[in-house]
Design a protein around this nucleic acid. Structure first.
Length: 283
DNA sequence: AACCAGGCACTTA
DNA sequence: TAAGTGCATGGT
């Protein structure tokens, strides 16, 4: 097991990063650190007096810098967004959020599972997918970890086999989407990061189980599209409470976010999401 | 026992 | 194009 220390990192809070709904495979340890799996490697991440400490068999610094989005200057982004007083308050309780740069395929499938579902159950479903169909990554801290199953594997799995994951009606979306992605060898999906947002969205919306909200999540969390502004029931709620929108006026919120928060709508959205989900709680 | 969860697809008008 | 409705599952 190796150890990587990345020094002098500001705007970094473990709970805000791993517990703000962007990822489903990181879990908190008793010491406050988080253990999870990213790009096929199990790892434990901790943060102490400005140092990000990663314990993993894989400790390539550039890869972890990229995954944890350490190259982005969140101080500057927060400052830009703080011209809005309401946003300023949301940022105050969510200050250490960073948008992880996650795997596109894993993010696609995970957010298909997320629809009309709750975070606890989503995590359970994803875990079962990995445990049932992903390759073992061996033991880490006495527990066995599994990789997220690849396109090749999931595209060949039948609906009956998926039953163990308790995906409900989403199982058929996943089976069909897997087959569609497999058909072009994942080319279009991997292209998403370098394409303009409209083209990436257009492709994603063509996949079964992917609508506007899920597409925005995939683009924000895995395709480096910081302007994507996913609106779910929570964001609708917080936009209604803080900015006075009708809770069903998704179009109005979308437009407002594009103007007010550009070009960091997605990051603003994460501050709002975290704010509404954790208000009243200590953080 | 209804209602809800990081919505979407399908049907109707 | 818009508006309404069903949907698997598990928790409250």
């Amino acid at each position: 097991m190796k150890k990587l220390v990345i020094k002098d990192i500001k705007d970094f809070n473990l709970d805000h990063i791993f517990d703000c709904g962007q990822c489903f495979r990181w879990n908190k340890e008793e010491d406050g650190s988080y253990t999870g799996v990213a790009f096929g490697n199990v790892a434990n991440v901790n943060y102490s007096s400005g140092d990000v400490i990663i314990i993993s068999p894989f400790v390539a610094e550039s890869a972890w810098r990229s995954y944890l989005d350490l190259e982005r200057d969140y101080g500057r982004i927060k400052e830009a967004l703080s011209s809005d007083n309401i946003m300023k308050e949301a940022i105050a309780v969510s200050q250490g959020i960073r948008i992880l740069n996650q795997d596109k395929w894993e993010t696609l499938i995970s957010f298909i599972i997320s629809q009309n579902n709750n975070i606890t159950r989503i995590k359970g479903c994803v875990e079962m997918l990995c445990r049932s169909f992903g390759r073992s990554l061996g033991k880490f801290g006495g527990r066995e970890f599994f990789d997220f199953p690849g396109v090749d594997r999931l595209s060949k799995i039948g609906l009956a086999e998926l039953d163990v994951c308790r995906l409900g009606y989403r199982a058929k979306y996943i089976a069909e989407t897997a087959r569609l992605v497999e058909r072009d060898g994942g080319t279009k999906l991997s292209l998403g990061g370098s394409e303009p947002i409209e083209r990436a969205r257009e492709y994603l919306l063509g996949l079964p189980g992917v609508g506007p909200k899920v597409a925005d999540c995939i683009m924000l969390f895995s395709m480096n599209k910081a302007e994507a502004f996913p609106i779910d029931v929570w964001v609708a709620r917080v936009m209604s409470e803080l900015y006075g929108f009708d809770e069903e006026d998704y179009e109005g919120m979308q437009k407002f976010a594009a103007e007010r928060f550009a070009p960091y709508g997605g990051i603003a959205q994460q501050y709002l999401f975290h704010y509404i989900r954790h208000r009243g709680a200590l953080s």
